[in-house]
Amino acid sequence: MESQELIIVDVFCQEYQIEINFIHDLEEFGLIETVVVQEQKYLLKNQLAFIEKIIRMHNDLHINKEGIEVILDLLEKNKQLENQIKNLKERINLYE
């Protein structure tokens, strides 16, 4: 994994003015992944938008980590249902 694909957790937390414990809690909940390289924790750059979304839910909407977990699960299920509907519509169109 190349170093430009990783963001140091400490630097990220300073930039976004959040506590490091928040990132650790998100990781414990299984909402995000971190990578340890030479005893330094990093976030994956491709998760940045997702983590920003979580931070906005937490800071702007005052949703706790449990609530964020539920919301993200529901959003994922909604996405799966939308894909299923799309596939079913395509199958129906074949018979029209």
Rank of each mutant, 00 (worst) to 15 (best):
M1P: 04
M1Q: 04
M1H: 03
M1E: 05
E2I: 00
E2Q: 11
S3K: 09
Q4Y: 02
E5P: 11
E5D: 15
E5M: 06
E5Y: 05
E5N: 15
E5W: 02
L6T: 13
I7W: 06
I7Q: 15
I7E: 15
I8D: 09
V9H: 03
V11M: 14
V11Y: 11
V11W: 12
F12D: 11
F12R: 13
F12I: 09
C13M: 03
C13G: 08
Y16D: 09
Y16W: 12
Y16A: 09
Q17H: 08
Q17D: 10
I18V: 11
F22S: 13
F22M: 13
I23H: 11
I23C: 14
H24G: 04
D25L: 10
D25G: 10
D25K: 13
D25W: 03
L26F: 06
E27W: 02
E28D: 14
E28R: 15
E28V: 04
E28T: 08
F29V: 07
F29N: 12
F29A: 12
F29Y: 14
G30H: 08
I32K: 10
I32F: 10
I32D: 04
I32N: 07
E33K: 15
E33A: 12
T34D: 04
V37S: 15
Q38K: 14
E39A: 05
E39V: 02
Q40A: 06
Q40E: 10
Q40R: 11
K41D: 05
K41C: 09
K41R: 14
K41Q: 12
Y42D: 01
Y42M: 00
Y42H: 05
L44M: 09
L44K: 14
K45R: 13
N46Y: 09
Q47R: 04
Q47I: 00
Q47T: 00
A49G: 05
A49P: 01
F50G: 10
F50I: 07
F50K: 14
F50H: 12
I51Q: 05
I51W: 01
I51T: 01
E52L: 13
E52H: 06
E52Q: 10
I54A: 10
I55T: 05
R56E: 07
M57C: 08
H58Q: 06
N59M: 03
D60K: 09
H62D: 07
I63C: 02
I63G: 02
E66D: 14
G67P: 05
I68V: 05
I68H: 00
E69I: 02
I71M: 04
L72Y: 02
L72E: 04
L72W: 02
D73H: 11
D73P: 00
D73M: 09
L74K: 15
E76W: 03
E76V: 01
E76Y: 06
K77R: 13
N78Q: 08
Q80G: 01
I85N: 14
I85V: 15
N87Y: 11
N87D: 15
N87G: 15
L88A: 10
L88R: 08
K89D: 06
K89I: 11
R91I: 01
R91M: 12
R91S: 08
R91V: 01
I92W: 09
Y95H: 11
Y95V: 03
